[in-house]
C-alpha cells in the first residue's frame, strides 16, 4: 500500500502531473477571462503563469522537473508559429490594397519598437540581460522566444515581457487612438497588432473587424520583420 507521501513523490516527479496542471489551469483562466468579457487585463496566459509559479514555489518543485512535463506543450510553439502563414495568406488581398502604408509603417514601426524599448532600458541602467530580453517585446511570443535565444536574451524573461507589452498595448490603444482623433480603423488595427501582437489583435477584433484583420496582419509581418532585423541590430552582443 502506498502512503500519500509516496504517491506525491511519484506524481511530483512525473511529467503527467505538470502537463495536466498547465492545461487545466489554462482552461480555468480562459473561463475567468470569458466571464470578464475578455477584458485585456484578465489575460489567461498571465493568470496561468502566476498560478503555476505559485504552485511550484509552494511544493518546492524545480523548474527543470516542471519542464519535463511542460516540454510537450512547449514543443508546439514551433508548428504554431509556422501556422501564422495561414492568416497571412488569407490577408494577401489587404496587403495588395494597402501595400504602401503597410510597408512604410512596418519598416519604421518594427525597428522603433525594438530601439525605443532597449534605448530607454540602457539609459536607466538596465542590465544587458534585461536589454536583450526587451528586444522582441512587441513580437508574438512564439517568434519572440526564438529571437531572444538567437541574440542571447533570456527566453523566459522575454515571454513575460511580451505578455506585459501585449496587455499594456491592448489597454492603452483605444483611449489613445480616440484622443489622437484617428478614425481610420485599418491604421488603428495595424498599430495595435504591430505593437501588441496577439493580445492587441484580440482587442482590435473587439473594437472593429477591419481593425482586427489589420492587427493580425501586422502581428505576422512584425514577427517576420523583427526576426530578420533583430540579429542584424543586436547580434553583436551574443
Amino acid at each position: 500500500m502506498t502512503t500519500n507521501f509516496d504517491l506525491w513523490v511519484y506524481l511530483a516527479a512525473s511529467p503527467l502531473l505538470w502537463l495536466t496542471l498547465t492545461i487545466g489551469t489554462f482552461l480555468a483562466a480562459q473561463w475567468i477571462a470569458k466571464r470578464s468579457f475578455y477584458h485585456p487585463v484578465v489575460n489567461p496566459v498571465l493568470i496561468t503563469i502566476v498560478v503555476v509559479v505559485l504552485v511550484l514555489r509552494l511544493t518546492g518543485t524545480s523548474y527543470d522537473t516542471y519542464f519535463d512535463g511542460a516540454q510537450f506543450i512547449h514543443f508546439i510553439l514551433g508548428p504554431a508559429t509556422v501556422a501564422l502563414a495561414i492568416p497571412l495568406y488569407r490577408s494577401r488581398q489587404l496587403v495588395k490594397a494597402k501595400a504602401l502604408p503597410i510597408l512604410a509603417s512596418l519598416a519604421i514601426g518594427a525597428p522603433f519598437a525594438m530601439l525605443s524599448a532597449t534605448g530607454i532600458a540602457i539609459v536607466l541602467g538596465g542590465a544587458p540581460a534585461i536589454v536583450l530580453a526587451l528586444v522582441p517585446k512587441s513580437v508574438t511570443a512564439g517568434i519572440a522566444v526564438g529571437i531572444a535565444g538567437q541574440i542571447g536574451g533570456e527566453p523566459a524573461l522575454t515571454a513575460v515581457l511580451v505578455i506585459a507589452t501585449g496587455i499594456l498595448g491592448a489597454v492603452v490603444v483605444t483611449p489613445l487612438m480616440n484622443a489622437l482623433k484617428i478614425t481610420d480603423y485599418a491604421a488603428r488595427g495595424f498599430a495595435a497588432g504591430l505593437t501588441s501582437h496577439g493580445i492587441g489583435t484580440a482587442r482590435a477584433f473587439q473594437v472593429n473587424s477591419v481593425a482586427g484583420t489589420f492587427a493580425g496582419l501586422a502581428m505576422a509581418l512584425n514577427g517576420l520583420a523583427t526576426a530578420f532585423l533583430a540579429p542584424l541590430i543586436f547580434g553583436f552582443f551574443s
Partner: peptide
C-alpha cells in the same frame, strides 16, 4: 484546419517558457 486549431490555443504554448520567469 490544423493551423486554425493551433492558433486558437496559441496562448497555451508559451506558458512553459513564461513559467521560467521563476528563475529570474
Amino acid at each position: 484546419k490544423s493551423a486554425d486549431g493551433l492558433l486558437a490555443n496559441l496562448g497555451l504554448v508559451f506558458i512553459p517558457a513564461g513559467v521560467g520567469i521563476s528563475q529570474n
